[in-house]
């Protein structure tokens, strides 16, 4: 006798259901919708199919992510490596700019300047040394770009809702700052709001600074694009939705397009205050 995927499961335990879909077995199929209703797992057939859709979507996207080797820890490594490459490329660019300025007198900065140095064809030994450094710098910047592309490809499988709301790169940053998707899912939204602002938070706790209104979520257009007076509210609203998204991603893996509509509406309301000309 074979059992359906739902046998003995708590209907609210999405994570267990996802595991069953992935790892369960049966020799022969059976009238699972009827059995699920009889067992009280689903209210009726429609309810059963609704649950089945949610849980097969979640299980299959998790299985895809797993088979492609993309889990939250891979994402954490990738986003940290991307940040290292970006920071190092920027630092080296400054070095190239300083050195280049001393030789060619032209001023410039950043990776773009390093790129322009790689195109020069001066033959002096010093030119060659500088050009080689510039090439390495550009290579690092390119590496950062390909890591970014990897993150953009894999974050939506690891954390679909969080990636939808935050964009894949910010989603990966938040997961990285928390130390993993599970850790992020367990943080209160007030903590999510200031993730990445640990220095400012520490200064505040020591009593010599105001409490930070936002951490890395400042890079989100909904925070940055809101006028200064309302940024705290926007950051709070965004962090709230991101926390919910992270929890759904971790515990069930369901896709919830309605979260985006909710967030859009909240932010619209906050930004509308500016037009009405009154705050609060």
């Amino acid at each position: 006798m074979s059992n359906g995927w739902f046998a003995g499961l708590d209907p609210d335990d999405d994570a267990a259901a996802v595991k069953r879909i992935a790892a369960g077995q049966a020799d022969t199929p059976d009238d699972w919708p009827q059995q699920a209703v009889d067992a009280g797992f689903a209210d009726d057939e429609a309810d059963y199919y609704h649950r089945l859709h949610d849980v097969t979507m979640a299980a299959t996207s998790a299985a895809v992510a797993e088979q492609e080797g993309a889990d939250d820890q891979q994402l954490v490594h990738a986003v940290r490596a991307m940040a290292d490459c970006e920071r190092t490329a920027n630092e080296l660019s400054e070095r190239v700019a300083e050195w280049g300025g001393s030789r060619y007198g032209d001023s410039g900065s950043g990776v773009e300047y390093a790129r322009s140095v790689t195109d020069r064809d001066d033959e002096d030994e010093g030119d060659i040394a500088l050009r080689s450094l510039a090439e390495q710098t550009v290579e690092l910047a390119n590496e950062a770009d390909s890591l970014r592309a990897y993150i953009e490809r894999t974050a939506p499988a690891v954390a679909p809702n969080l990636s939808m709301l935050a964009g894949p790169v910010l989603a990966a940053r938040l997961i990285s700052l928390a130390g993993g998707l599970e850790a992020l899912a367990k943080k209160p939204s007030g903590t999510v709001q200031v993730l990445g602002a640990e220095d400012a938070l520490f200064a505040h706790l020591k009593g010599n600074a105001p409490s930070p209104k936002h951490g890395v979520i400042f890079t989100h257009e909904y925070v940055r694009g809101t006028r200064r007076e309302d940024r705290g509210s926007a950051a709070r609203a965004l962090a709230g939705k991101l926390s919910i998204a992270a929890r759904i991603d971790h515990y069930s893996g369901d896709r919830r397009p309605d979260l985006q509509a909710d967030l859009d509406e909240r932010i619209e309301r906050i930004q509308a205050r500016a037009e009405e000309g009154d705050s609060e």
């Binding site: 074979s2 995927w5 369960g24 077995q25 699972w32």
Partner: peptide, 9 residues
Amino acid sequence: GSYAHVVEP
């Protein structure tokens, strides 16, 4: 057997 616990007849 890896999906008969999900797929009905």
